[in-house]
Amino acid sequence: MLSRTADSLFWLSRYVERADNTARIIDAASRLVAMPIAYAGTSNEWESALAAAGALWSFQERHPTADRDAVIDFLAFSPDNPSSIRSCIETARHNARSVRGALTTEMWEAMNAAWLELKRYDGRAMDRTALNDFLSRVKEACLRFDGSAYRTMLRNDVYFFSRIGVYLERADNTARILDVKYHVLLPETVSVGGGLDYFQWASILRSVSALTAYRWVYRQSLKPWLIADLLVLNEQMPRSLASCYENLSAFLDELSIAYGRQGAAQRTARSIRTRLQNASISDIFQKKGLHEFLSEFIADNGRLGAAIAEQYLT
């Protein structure tokens, strides 16, 4: 397969995953902001939404204050933000078009329909109902694309690259959401467990659609270390770092079998996965600190991306 084709597939998946993720971040932030301050706390939810989406700096370059309309416009619609939902869908569709031969008809139609549908929405003057509608359509479009990939693609390198894109992006997104929220809620000076705010924590789970999953897995009230455990170490949780790396290792191994050789990408993924498998959440909190652990993880995840690009995509 052409490296450019693999690159386009990889980024196509990443952009779809990113659009889905940003939609969830906006969704969770809007819910929290709608609550009385007594429940939601006084932190600027919009600013942390920007941080979770990795867009705080580029936002601040353009806007003095992080108010609702400006943030929603920036995260969902702005052409100035290459990771805004609209930019993600545009780029994904462009990539899909340039590798149309490698996609199944169902995937192409799902992508093209999403693009046609979502470009009808006007970012300006969007009230809450319209925003909810927009966000749920984004989520549906991403589900449809992902589902059509799962149901229709041949299980060959084309599929492997598109899956690798999904999990690499997802791991990055989950780590960022957790890191940003953790920081907001628990500055280093405050001990773990103190100052827990149920609604803030619920909001984290909501932004990775894991509120129900938490209840099923732990069957108890929300506790920060269990939330971290769910999102970092639990392989059953499809958005956890551990689950992402289980999949990344598996698909990279599939590639190495298909091509008859392996390299830095496989080794990097395996070593990150082993570290996650051997970690316990109490060690993470007590020995290293969650923030340091997540920062390191985000950097490692970036290194895996670079190794994949070096080995296959250029």
């Binding site: 397969m1 052409l2 490296s3 450019r4 084709t5 693999a6 149309r100 031969g101 390198d157 690259f161 590639l255 091509y259 296959y312 995509l313 250029t314």
Partner: peptide
């Protein structure tokens, strides 16, 4: 893209190709 698909050959752009030792190569995975 239609023809490449029907022919079963790679659809390449200039940036997918390079020349090394006077041989034309395409960058693949």
């Amino acid at each position: 893209s239609f023809l490449a698909d029907k022919l079963g050959v790679e659809l390449v752009e200039g940036r997918d190709l390079l020349v090394h030792d006077n041989v034309l190569l395409m960058r693949t995975t």
